[in-house]
Nucleic acid binder design. Structure first.
Lengths: 207, 207
DNA sequence: TCTCATAATGACCCACGGGTCAGTAAGCGT
DNA sequence: ACGCTTACTGACCCGTGGGTCATTATGAGA
């Protein structure tokens, strides 16, 4: 018997993780400055002092919490580019759909994005870390798909190969929109995604 | 003699504007929570109490400062769609170039964007205001260009007409990149803009 | 059941910063 | 010059929240 929630005292080495979870939730909701250690402790079912048992300072807790949740962001998106059965066009399409599902439609992930943007100035580590863990991998993956697609005659030679990120522009906009303008004008992510795919695949101009 | 900086006491009805300028600078650099009224006052060459002569609370000052600088953002971008001499394609191209120049390359404007994203949760007014003053106008303008372009046979029928914002996605990404990842991997905005135009005009796929 | 190492607690300390207000001094009218 | 209005000042007040630490509670081993 014992444990569960009423009196799960003592004997816990999963405490740090519980605290990190609570922390990332609150930092995402309220930002760094407006989140108190007491609030984090309470949500984690612990006392304030317990937090300081595992983390030196609020800053340290913050950085570790964000890192903890940046790491797995890419694993949800990663797909084996090498062994994909379909065309490169289909692969790119699937990748983009997956990014919308993983980054735009998922509230916790959007919160991470907001945190990185908001606190990027005061915590340059975060921007660098996010770049290393997500952006770089994504760039490489997209670059690879483009290169193969061109070789296979599916894609034309475009400037996008120097800036793979340009393909993901609308994703960033959708994420920001959801966080910022959604009350003013709700965004239908599904249809936005379709418009995005339509645009980058076909372009605007007639020929 | 007199005035200038050493002892510009009293007699000022431009005081509020000086304070707003100082405020927007610091809010942009450090965010809402980390900016102190004393710091704003000091930068404006006034004492703390003076700030409270013109603004009720820190929140009020913040909202007014941001509004003050959101308003003119669109005027720098606006162009007369009706009487443009060139093609719709040229018009769209010029519009996008101008948006990069006004929003991405200008540090103060980027700061506004970061503020709206960062503080959008705690100050929903801001998101709504930005949407009303910038997003809505921009959507209308782009929608108009697309519509005419299709009518003139320059553009194909695309899903972008339901989501004009999708065209501006890469702009948002570039702005965020400059604020967040630029130390990790500097962004060449000029060339990024070219890649963006290339992409949306021509698309990726061969035909 | 008793002991002891240590996980956990929360009252406490104190720096910081939003907001106040009694006092100061700059100009203006006379 | 002399007052009088009022823009302006900054020392002060006090709530908040990061960080500490003496004390308590827990449970594993004897």
């Amino acid at each position: 018997m014992s444990d569960s929630s009423p009196a799960p005292k003592r004997r816990k080495e999963q405490r740090p993780l519980e605290i990190l979870r609570a922390a990332i939730d609150l930092f995402g909701e309220q930002g760094f400055a407006h989140t108190t250690i007491s609030a984090i402790a309470k949500r984690a079912g612990a006392a304030k002092g317990t937090v300081y048992l595992y983390f030196e300072t609020k800053e340290a807790l913050f950085e570790e919490a964000v890192r903890q949740f940046i790491k797995p962001m890419f694993s949800g998106i990663k797909l084996s580019v090498d062994r994909f059965p379909g065309t490169n066009r289909e692969l790119l399409e699937m990748l983009i759909r997956r990014v919308y599902a993983q980054l735009v439609e998922n509230e916790e992930r959007r919160a991470i994005i907001r945190i990185v943007i908001s606190e990027g100035q005061r915590f340059p580590h975060l921007g660098q870390f996010y770049h290393r863990e997500i952006i770089q991998h994504a760039q490489k993956m997209i670059g690879q798909i483009l290169q193969r697609g061109v070789a296979a005659g599916e894609f034309r030679e475009s400037l996008a190969k120097s800036f793979p990120a340009v393909l993901m522009g609308p994703v960033m906009l959708a994420a920001v929109w959801k966080m910022t303008f959604d009350t003013a004008q709700p965004l239908n992510v599904q249809r936005f995604c379709e418009a995005h795919l339509d645009l980058i695949m076909q372009g605007l101009c007639t020929r």
